[in-house]
C-alpha cells in the first residue's frame, strides 16, 4: 500500500509570530521555520504503518518555495521513501493547495493520504476536507487512531464530547489530530541517509491547476492587548473582587 503525506513548511511552533509594522503580514524574515506540527504527526503515522508492514511506500509532497526542500528532507529523515516539491513563490490558499495535491494524487495513485488537520500559520483547517471532496474519496478528519485492514480503514475521530469511529473505503483522506501519535526525532544517521533519498522538484505551475488566491488580504494587525497583571493577596480578596468589581456572583 502506498501513502501520500502532504507536508507544509511553517514558522516554528516555539516562535511567536510578529506582525509587520506596515500591517502587510507576519514577519517571516530570519525566523526559524519547521515542519507544521500536525504534518509531523501525519508523517510519523505513515512511518509507523510502514514499520507494521501495512505500507510499502511513503511519498512526501510539499507545495511552496524552494526552501520547502528542507521540510521534505525532514520527512525523508523520519522515514518517507521519496519526496516531491511543487515549487512556487505564490501565496497559496487551502483550495489551491487541495487542487495541486489532487493533481499529484491522480498521478501517484496512493491508497491513502494522511495529512495534518491544520497548519499553524493560516489556521484554516480546510485542505484535507477539500482534497477529499475534489478526489471524491471518503474523509475522516481529526484522527486519533487509524487501523487499515482489507481495503478499508477504521478511523477514531475526536469530536465534541468524545470519540467517533468511522470506516472508510480506500483510497481515502485522513487528517491527523494531536493525539494520533508522538512524532520521533530523526536520528543523525537517518538525516544523512535522507540526503540521498530522491526529491523531485517540479514547477507548481506545470500541474495546470488554478493556484490564484481568492482572497485579498487587506491588513494583518496585532490582536487587542489584555491589560492583565493585577494580583490579589488571598482567596478571600479574590472572591470579594469577583463579587464587587467583576460582578460575577
Amino acid at each position: 500500500m502506498k501513502v501520500l503525506v502532504p507536508v507544509k513548511r511553517v514558522i516554528d511552533y516555539n516562535v511567536k509570530a510578529r506582525v509587520k509594522s506596515d500591517q502587510s503580514g507576519v514577519d517571516l524574515a530570519n525566523v526559524k521555520m519547521s515542519m507544521n506540527p500536525f504534518c509531523e504527526i501525519a508523517v510519523e503515522e505513515a512511518v509507523r504503518m510502514k514499520e507494521k508492514g501495512v505500507v510499502s511506500e511513503i511519498v512526501a509532497v510539499s507545495i511552496g518555495p524552494i526552501q520547502a526542500q528542507e521540510t521534505l528532507r525532514t520527512a525523508l529523515a523520519m522515514g518517507a521513501d521519496r519526496a516531491i516539491l511543487l515549487q512556487t513563490d505564490q501565496d497559496l490558499e487551502p483550495l489551491a493547495v487541495a487542487k495541486a495535491l489532487a493533481a499529484v494524487a491522480n498521478e501517484e495513485k496512493p491508497d491513502l493520504i494522511v495529512m495534518g488537520k491544520q497548519a499553524i500559520d493560516g489556521d484554516n483547517n480546510a485542505t484535507g476536507q477539500m482534497l477529499s471532496t475534489l478526489l471524491g474519496w471518503p474523509q475522516a478528519t481529526f484522527a486519533s487512531a487509524i487501523e487499515v485492514s482489507g481495503g478499508k480503514v477504521k478511523v477514531t475521530r475526536e469530536v465534541d464530547g468524545g470519540l467517533q469511529n468511522l470506516e472508510l473505503d480506500l483510497p481515502a483522506v485522513i487528517t491527523a489530530d494531536l493525539r494520533l501519535n508522538e512524532p520521533r526525532y530523526a536520528s543523525l544517521p537517518n538525516i544523512m541517509k535522507a540526503k540521498k533519498k530522491p526529491l523531485d522538484i517540479k514547477e507548481a505551475a506545470s500541474l495546470g491547476v488554478d493556484l490564484a488566491p481568492r482572497l485579498k488580504v487587506l491588513k494583518v494587525a496585532e490582536p487587542a492587548k489584555r491589560s492583565g497583571g493585577a494580583k490579589v493577596e488571598n482567596a478571600a480578596e479574590l472572591v470579594a473582587k469577583l463579587k464587587t468589581e467583576a460582578g460575577i456572583f
Binding site: 490558499e93 487541495a98 476536507q129 477529499s132 481529526f142 475526536e158 488566491p213
Partner: peptide, 23 residues
C-alpha cells in the same frame, strides 16, 4: 466553527469552488 462544522464546511467550499474563510 465547532469540530462538527469544521469537518464538513471545507467540502461545501471545495464543491462550490470558492475559498473558505475560517473562524
Amino acid at each position: 466553527a465547532t469540530s462538527q462544522g469544521k469537518n464538513f464546511s471545507p467540502r461545501i467550499a471545495a464543491r462550490l469552488d470558492v475559498a473558505q474563510i475560517s473562524e
